[in-house]
Design a protein around this nucleic acid. Structure first.
Length: 430
RNA sequence: GGAGAGGUGGCCGAGUGGUCGAAGGCGCACGCCUGGAAAGCGUGUAGGCGGGAAACCGUCUCGCGGGUUCGAAUCCCGCUCUCUCCGCCA
């Protein structure tokens, strides 16, 4: 959410930043409401001040036993009561109106984010690692013999429908190993705090991170009103919601391995084969809470943490910075990390690392007390996948495949697989 | 699911319908003391909103929302969350 004062002081800059996202100016509407709101607040407060003053006099009259004066003042105050209630109600309504509008406005891009309309205008920063060479045509993950034995879409469709999968045997184990491996690296080498959170959350949490009020249709809601989180960003970031934390406890770096749930509304027909795009998937998510001055460095650090996983797995990737038109609602700047998938002959997103500035912090009222005391300030929040486990499984399988339908597994995973190195065409470990 | 107890500042914790944004403590900041530190002593220390160049002023906030009252942290009603016991349960 945006600072109304910042908009008030510089509406032109605000609208210009929104224009970079391809949005029409909103500051006129915002300022109209803000003006009305402030007028209402002033009237209501003046009325209230008058009542409070009269009330004190009433008390004094009563105390000195002046019954006539007491009755006169009492009647006076009582007569004003309805007026005050009306003014206060009006002020509240205007305030709510402003908040409701502000909650629908996305974050502003940082100055160094490239302008662009959609993903075609994202800018590649660099490529790392070499895509493997094959002397045969590499298959998509679900076509590899050794994989097909443990990846069952028919049964999943029977159980749940499209965009679900049943993993079994060695494939399920590799999937599990990947998540364990990521957590181990992040906790022991990157200094992130392992965390386990609910995946069912209240409305306010989805509001805090920005899924609500605009994107409710992308997530699932239970009949009693909980939301199934689309990412652990929701729970990890909201850990500091409503808090004032000490500066000395920053930065806070969390990592969690959770299930994620997405309706994939609007992705009909996209990535329908294989397990690239599922309604339910696992992700290892990183979240950092920092002081304002530290978020830029933290963004680079977090990007490196995500890339480190790919590097250890021997996968090739490219890192792109999203253009203004492709960024998510809450982001100021986003790095997408795209892993090489031989079966698709392309790079596909496996991680998205965003810095949100104080945008989410304002929505969830998350603050810190600066060193040496002073007024609380909003924290900065960042989030990034480290990594999407299902997509990482796909990448490992497709990149390690051999002509006979077996898969050579990355060395980093061997300790998690009893020291064995290969998925055989029959779906066994060897 | 049943019964009970309780939500007060950054944290802990007191609070009689009226000068209560609220005792006390912890923490923190500054000062004194010290060769330096600790301890000790003293002083200060909530947040939001509105107005103001500022000093400062006003207003709201004791879980949330209503009500009673001239006046509510305090009384009444509803909601919500937490805890305890019982039941059920992975």
């Amino acid at each position: 959410m945006h600072d109304i004062r910042a908009i008030r002081e510089n509406p032109a800059d605000f609208d210009a930043a929104l224009a970079r996202r391809g949005l029409d100016p909103v500051s006129p509407a915002v300022l109209d409401i803000d003006t009305a709101r402030r007028t209402c607040i002033q009237s209501a407060e003046e009325a209230k001040a008058a009542q409070n003053a009269a009330s004190r006099e009433v008390g004094a009259a009563k105390a000195r036993g002046d019954e006539a004066e007491f009755e006169r003042l009492r009647a006076l105050v009582a007569a004003k009561k309805a007026d005050i209630a009306r003014l206060e109600e009006e002020a509240r309504a205007q305030d709510a109106r402003l908040r409701d509008l502000l909650l629908t406005i996305p974050n502003l891009p940082l100055a160094d984010v490239p302008d662009g309309a959609d993903e075609a205008e994202n800018v590649e920063l660099y490529r790392r690692g070499a895509p493997p060479a094959f002397d045969f045509t590499p298959r998509e993950h679900f076509e590899i013999a050794g994989v097909a034995a443990g990846m069952d879409f028919e049964t999943a469709a029977k159980l749940s429908g499209a965009r679900f999968v049943v993993l079994s045997g060695v494939v399920a184990r590799i999937h599990r190993a990947l998540a364990q491996f990521m957590l181990d690296v992040h906790t022991t080498e990157n200094g992130l705090q392992e965390t386990w959170t609910p995946v069912l959350v209240r409305d306010e949490m989805m509001l805090g991170t920005g899924q609500l009020p605009k994107f409710g249709e992308d997530s699932y809601r239970t009949t009693n009103g909980w939301w199934l989180v689309p990412t652990a960003e929701v729970t990890l970031t909201n850990i500091v919601a409503g808090e004032i934390v000490e500066a000395a406890t920053l930065p806070r770096r969390y990592v969690a391995h959770t299930q994620c749930f997405r309706s994939e509304a609007g992705s009909a027909g996209k990535d329908t084969r294989g397990m690239l795009r599922q309604h339910q998937f696992e992700k290892v998510e990183m979240v950092s809470i920092t002081a304002p001055g530290d978020s830029a460095a933290e963004h680079a650090r977090m990007t490196a943490c995500a890339e480190g996983i790919l590097e250890r797995l021997g996968l090739a990737w490219r890192t792109v910075v999203l253009c203004t038109g492709d960024m998510g609602f809450g982001a100021q700047k986003t790095h997408d990390i795209e892993v090489w998938l031989p079966g698709q002959n392309s790079y596909r997103e496996i991680s998205s690392v965003s810095t949100c500035g104080d945008f989410q912090a304002r929505r969830m009222n998350a603050r810190f007390r600066p060193e040496g005391g002073g007024k609380p300030e909003f924290v900065h929040t960042l989030n990034g996948s480290g990594l999407a486990v299902g997509r990482c499984l796909i990448a490992v399988l497709e990149n390690g495949q051999r002509a006979d339908g077996s898969v050579l597994l990355p060395e980093a995973l061997h300790p998690y697989l009893g020291g064995r190195t290969t998925l055989t065409p029959e779906g066994q470990l060897a």
